[in-house]
Write a protein that binds this DNA or RNA. Sequence first.
DNA 1: TATTACCCTACCAAGTCAATAGACTTTTAA
DNA 2: TTAAAAGTCTATTGACTTGGTAGGGTAATA
Lengths: 135, 135
Amino acid sequence: MLSKKSQYAFNALVYLATKYKEGPVLISEISKKKKIPLKFLENILLELKKAGMLDSKKGKGGGYFLKKDPSKIKVANVIRLLNGPIAMLPCVSLYFYERCKNCDEKNCGLHDMMIEVRDATLNILENRTLNDLLL
Amino acid sequence: MLSKKSQYAFNALVYLATKYKEGPVLISEISKKKKIPLKFLENILLELKKAGMLDSKKGKGGGYFLKKDPSKIKVANVIRLLNGPIAMLPCVSLYFYERCKNCDEKNCGLHDMMIEVRDATLNILENRTLNDLLL
DNA sequence: TATTACCCTACCAAGTCAATAGACTTTTAA
DNA sequence: TTAAAAGTCTATTGACTTGGTAGGGTAATA
């Protein structure tokens, strides 16, 4: 399951996507409109900024805004950033791989099945962007 | 990601599947062969028994064994039992559904996408059984 | 009837999650 | 130039989960 943090992040990003190129949006505005605890949202936006998805402007008239076009921000990457691995096992994760203890990957039915699951999932998440979440 | 508990459970179940109809298998044997902490394994097996997947016999010559044919035990159900929801959002879960706060399900792009992900995943997990994990 | 082996309860350390608090910088508009 | 606006940073909190340990109770069977 996605953490609350990830869910908030998607809500915030979708909101920012609807305001793309309209200039900076206040944290407090996002917080109100999307009902996300203000300080929690601060942390999330900061994290997204450090990852290069958002940029911000300080002072009067400041706020957060998408750094890249919403069509360039993949859903899969948002999840990886805030939620961690998408795969169901460490030994089938592309970005967070860890070797299985007690399981020979060449010879493990679970491993093989989880690769299938991973690919089916990524086939969707890697091909969707913020734009696809708009409606 | 699947919890350690779920991973252990799969290892144990696969082991029991290879011994299906050979009589009860000792916890200690599974523990050794699959390198699962003994007492932790006890809890897991007990949980699986309560859920009706396993049965056990006490006393000399006792142990655990599959209650149903391995081909009748769906991977999806094992995950739900020990790991919880398979879906990425509560509002798209079939067995652990919870309404989304701050998201109108009829009108939420994230919701729709996560239904797709869920279906792609279940399409695999609901159609595989312990037998398919054997090799 | 002694063993064997399952069953149960409780506990623990470490980590994560969700959220809050408060102070600090930087920017910019007046 | 200066004060308010707004983002940045550090830290702490409480509740919960995870992974694992300990020890004894209970039932069955050879």
